[in-house]
Design a binder for these strands. Structure first.
Lengths: 119, 119
DNA sequence: TAAACATATGAACAATTGTTCATATGTTTA
DNA sequence: TAAACATATGAACAATTGTTCATATGTTTA
């Protein structure tokens, strides 16, 4: 119940509610993981890559061509997406094909669009 | 149909599909806005603030106390959340109360948790 | 009206991040 | 097996970002 005093007294009135809210919040680690996940979505290049993969499995070269970006830049970003378990890849000869590894992404993006398109 | 050549030839096979995917992708501006929105979610402090506000309207001081952070740090982040139209505020005397300004946030977070909790 | 209080904000700084460049790795083909 | 090819990756760099510190702004109270 004893919150750190940060030099104001207004919260004394709400001490009880603050205490309850704190107890209901997800674990520190969960909140961190959640932020990390959204951080991955927080880049135009990665969003574009994911949108491309919504439509079809594609190779690195296809994606680079589609987005008009360097193979290296795309490769670096695909690595980030892979680490976040958002995409998976398979090799076919020299070519590496990437595709989505999660069904929730589209849904999360759709919800994001709802917010953006709100008046 | 003429994509920029980036020095590989593998995509020549997929030119047609790449062309179609490109046509189906949301507008550049939409993709940018979407990334900007997720960028806001991509910080632990802001995620925590939003989770706190899921439970109750709170003043700046309450949030700072709850998270064990500086009033200034919280204030700066609330500004970011406000600019993204994720929270709104009302003044009651000297105290400024913040609350959620969007119904989708909780849903987006829940979807994010689904991804995190996937094996 | 002056002091107290809650919050906002600008400047500074360290830390993080995305792209580029050069090159390494892995696979196929001649 | 050497050359060609697709992709991965490390280092470097500019740009962005989150927090702190100091202080400004807005409101209430004595």
């Amino acid at each position: 119940m004893t919150e750190e005093n940060i030099g104001c007294s207004c919260n004394l009135v709400h001490e009880e509610i603050v205490y309850m809210v704190k107890k209901e919040m997800p674990a520190e680690e969960t909140l961190y993981d959640l932020a990390e996940l959204f951080k991955v979505f927080g880049d135009t290049t990665r969003v574009k890559i994911l949108y491309a993969l919504f439509a079809a499995e594609m190779c690195v070269c296809d994606i680079a061509s589609l987005l008009g970006m360097t193979q290296s830049a795309i490769s670096h970003q695909l690595r980030v997406l892979k680490q976040a378990r958002l995409v998976k890849n398979r090799r076919d000869g020299k070519v590496m094909y990437y595709s989505l590894d999660d069904e929730h992404i589209k849904h999360i993006f759709d919800q994001g669009l709802l917010h953006i398109n709100e008046k």
